[in-house]
């Protein structure tokens, strides 16, 4: 293309190899923060909720304060994680690649929420206790978010 093979060989030496490791952008770090906080906090909530159910707690209102604590904790962990991420890499805002990755991951994970809602409605038809229906819906939302964030990280690493 440039008619100088010698120059091309120098270029291949002086520039990094294509496909090499890409440092994480703020947006990618943000996805990691969301995934870790979701797994730690909401995952922890489901473990606690499971223990409560196994002890015979079936009133949904008893779970409300535990869930409220989990939500507050998740906000705290997420904010702290984003502060650390901002210190490591300067926030630049989303660009077209970030948006495309987010849209594609969302479109491929939404079916989990839809499945959860349908399962919840089916459970209500069969008079399944409210506590189970509520947690079924919450769990489907949790799984959907985990899938979405995992897909985002996959697209960031493997390409889109």
């Amino acid at each position: 293309m440039y008619g100088n093979f010698d120059i091309m060989s120098k270029i291949s030496v002086s520039l990094p190899e294509p496909g090499g490791r890409v440092s994480l952008s703020f947006e990618e770090r943000s996805v990691w923060v969301q995934l870790i906080s979701l797994l730690l906090v909401l995952g922890g909530y489901f473990i606690v909720a499971q223990q409560m159910v196994s002890r015979g707690v079936t009133e949904l209102v008893v779970f409300a304060p535990v869930f409220a604590v989990a939500v507050v904790l998740m906000v705290v962990v997420t904010v702290a994680g984003h502060i650390v991420a901002a210190l490591v890499s300067r926030p630049e805002g989303q660009d077209e690649r970030d948006r495309l990755i987010s849209w594609r991951a969302e479109s491929q994970s939404g079916w989990l929420v839809a499945t959860g809602v349908l399962a919840g409605i089916t459970a209500m038809v069969f008079s399944v206790p409210t506590v189970w229906v509520a947690h079924l819906l919450l769990f489907s939302l949790f799984l959907s978010e985990i899938l979405k964030l995992t897909l985002q990280l996959t697209y960031y690493r493997r390409g889109i």
């Binding site: 294509p18 496909g19 090499g20 890409v22 440092s23 952008s25 690649r97 390409g159």
Partner: peptide, 22 residues
């Protein structure tokens, strides 16, 4: 161009095909 450095890196590595505008 108005994108992140990681996006330029991904384009160079063939991991992302940019929009026509970019």
């Amino acid at each position: 161009v108005g994108v992140t450095r990681q996006t330029i890196n991904a384009i160079e590595a063939g991991k992302y095909s940019p929009s026509l505008e970019v």
